[in-house]
Design a protein around this nucleic acid. Structure first.
Lengths: 172, 172
DNA sequence: TCCATATCCTACCAGGGCGGTCGGATTGCC
DNA sequence: GGCAATCCGACCGCCCTGGTAGGATATGGA
């Protein structure tokens, strides 16, 4: 498998936050209960998102987490990278901060791995798909398939009449 | 990391086979020496390729492996799938033989994972990149960056210079 | 016929990462 | 102060990965 459960949990967490109103923080416990995920483990997951500047937090009673910016402006590539680290198809395939692609199997600098071409294309395919998907796409998808049930369903339904206009994103 | 070393080794092996003439089999030992890979482990790797019908083999002295069909007709998606198993971005994301995409996180059938959309797109990106790359592409790339050195370089050099001499660079 | 070479097969093993738990420190609203 | 919540780091079992070991089988050549 390609991504670990950190990515799965983290994305679900982000989607859940995307469904909440950004004014009030959502507690991890509420998300853990809603998604059926272990709270203590979610803490580790959300810590990565916070360090990446994707979510913000408030401590103490009635604290919690919320999106650092609107879901429309969050590309999933940033989310997944925060959760999984650099997206590289192979161990030997790490971009350093410059342009160069390093590969431990290249005996001399300048010679190319036979496989470098392949992994480059695969990496491109992954990153492109993650760049063109925003968190808002997933939130929208989630809303359509889940109805309006959510953590704050009661509060949300109250506001629901003056609903915002959102353009439907293309679904895979 | 996304793919294991089985994929790396297996792809390198396939590229090496693609550089050989298909008439005569290439022994695993020659490939292991050329690429600096452990022979015993390569046996396990090549077994997968053989079972997938991508390479053929001959046992006994002067035996070895060769491509089952021309490199132009081998899509890398088949190679990687043979080596890694089904390509799924997540544990919970397995196609059964029918059309359905199963996800263990779907609480009720018919409801959608919030993340299903994302993993579907990622999977699509990976598979597309693997489908549009053939083994011949990699062989060509390898030839351009490696010159013509290859396993059969000894015979080639003898023919060219008329005698054994120090090899200027390792093939690996 | 015997040997060298090579594929084929199964079992085995150490290490590390993954998924997860635990205990506690800190913060802040009531 | 008490409770709810974020924060932090240590710990831990399981399984998969990468690799080794040892042998059985097949085949061409001397």
């Amino acid at each position: 498998m390609i991504f670990s459960s950190k990515a799965e949990y983290g994305v679900r967490l982000m989607v859940e936050l995307g469904r909440q109103s950004p004014e009030q923080p959502t507690s991890l416990k509420a998300i853990a209960d809603a998604e059926g995920l272990p709270l203590a483990y979610l803490e580790q997951v959300v810590a990565r998102l916070r360090k990446a500047g994707l979510v913000m937090s408030a401590r103490g009673a009635h604290g919690g987490y919320w999106l650092a910016r609107p879901a429309e402006e969050i590309a999933m590539v940033d989310v997944v990278q925060a959760l999984e680290g650099a997206i590289a198809p192979m161990e030997c395939f790490v971009h350093d901060h410059t342009e160069r692609v390093l590969c431990s199997h290249e005996p001399d600098a300048g010679r190319g791995c036979a496989t470098k071409l392949l992994w480059t294309r695969v990496q491109g395919g992954i990153i492109r798909s993650l760049q063109t998907t925003t968190l808002a796409d997933l939130v929208e998808f989630s809303r359509r398939h889940d109805g309006e049930q959510s953590i704050g369903a009661d509060a949300q339904r109250e506001r629901a009449t003056g609903g915002p206009e959102r353009e439907p994103a293309s679904v895979a």
